[in-house]
């Protein structure tokens, strides 16, 4: 967005193409994520990587097409737009540290020796029958 003022005045008339395109792309990305998850038969790891890339793309669509993230409130200065963008990028960094960091740290070491996963799965199978009896 070279000149924020331009993009603002462009919105004064007609059909808001930016929004329409953003909406259509969002729907497509959601559908693709579904297809990858249920129809492709990729390995779990591949599926997770692809659907998370789609999620980040879709979030970027919202931020850029709907939320006017890069738009600056003052004339002839990109300060606010850049601040807003930098803020969200730093938030993304913190988000990845929190999520990936926690999953990695909590899953390492004791995670390897933690038989909980297996136990609970076995218990699930056992409990399955009981649950159905209860509710049907």
């Amino acid at each position: 967005m070279a000149n924020p003022q331009d993009s603002l005045s462009r919105e004064h008339g007609g059909i808001p193409w930016k929004h329409v395109i953003g909406y259509i792309l969002s729907i497509i990305l959601t559908a693709l994520a579904l297809w990858v998850t249920f129809e492709t038969g990729f390995s779990t790891r591949t599926i997770l990587i692809i659907i998370f890339i789609f999620a980040f793309l879709q979030a970027a669509l919202q931020l850029l097409m709907f939320m006017h993230m890069t738009e600056s409130s003052e004339k002839k200065s990109k300060l606010t737009g850049n601040t807003q963008t930098g803020n969200i990028l730093f938030a993304a960094f913190v988000a990845i540290v929190i999520v990936a960091g926690s999953v990695w740290v909590m899953g390492a070491g004791h995670g390897k020796h933690d038989h909980h996963k297996m136990d609970s799965k076995m218990e699930d199978m056992k409990m399955d029958g009981d649950m159905k009896m209860e509710h049907k």
Binding site: M106, A108, G109, H110, G111, K112
Partner: peptide, 13 residues
């Protein structure tokens, strides 16, 4: 993580 090195997340972490 340096606040809980002894919690057992293994040598790599």
């Amino acid at each position: 993580v340096h606040h809980f090195f002894t919690m057992g997340q293994g040598e790599l972490v």
